[in-house]
Amino acid sequence: MGSTESSTFLERNEFLIRRLHSLAGLIPVGAYMCIHLLTNASVLDSPGRFQTAVYQIHSLGAALPVVEWGFIFLPLLFHGILGVVIIRGGLPNSGAYRYTSNIRYSLQRGSGMVAMVFILWHVFHMHGWFHTAWWLENVAHPFFGAQFSPFNAASSAGAALGSSLVAILYAIGMLSCVFHLANGIWTMGITWGVWISPAAQKRASFVCSVFGVGLAVVGMSALWGMKTVDQEAARQVEHKMLEAKLASGEITEEEAEEKSAPHAAEAETGAAQAESESDTHTGG
């Protein structure tokens, strides 16, 4: 009845798109975030452990960008952009109606906005968004992006989080993401009709809270681990691992150069600030 001929594709398929939005929040976006934070938290064990995990991811080789874009960036963009559209369609009123679930409604939207801004920045900051030479040279590096070097995983991440301001922004952003996911799972359960009665919703809410707190602990640990990693020691470990990989032929020289931090090959010490030297890393 609602679909008139003049309505747009988006309007006609509103239900399906919203359900996909809901689904995308959990799979792959939410699931990816859990893996991401858990992987990152492995730095607490040792930088080597973290590096191993990163090598595992990068063993995808040429398929990696496809996976990154297809399963992470695009779903994320879809979830984020549609999220903005959804937020624009509502008028939060938790000031007038101070019920817990209504406050959560407002927080879900607030955290979503924070999360989106944060993730855009975070991906740029660490990953750089695109890995073409031109982009890296003219955009990413000049604007302090693409700081993460996969083959110097812990050390480059630690360096990127060197500033306390950056670390605090990361904490805020990461906690927003975690809240958004945990609360999102709860509302998703209602949207899809998994938990129905108020009692079931209450139980689900408890489970989601526990999950959220757990994930927040993991995330904060990862952040703490990255921030406080002994960068020099890490770089040495990473160097050794890279040498071994090169020796076994698993990694080519070219790839090694691309995915290593500028000073990593020299295996030298020195608290060089990654940002100031980023423009030297343009070999590709």
Partner: peptide, 12 residues
Amino acid sequence: DEGGLQICGNAQ
């Protein structure tokens, strides 16, 4: 359909 259940934001 358009304007249906999907608009609900679970503010309750």
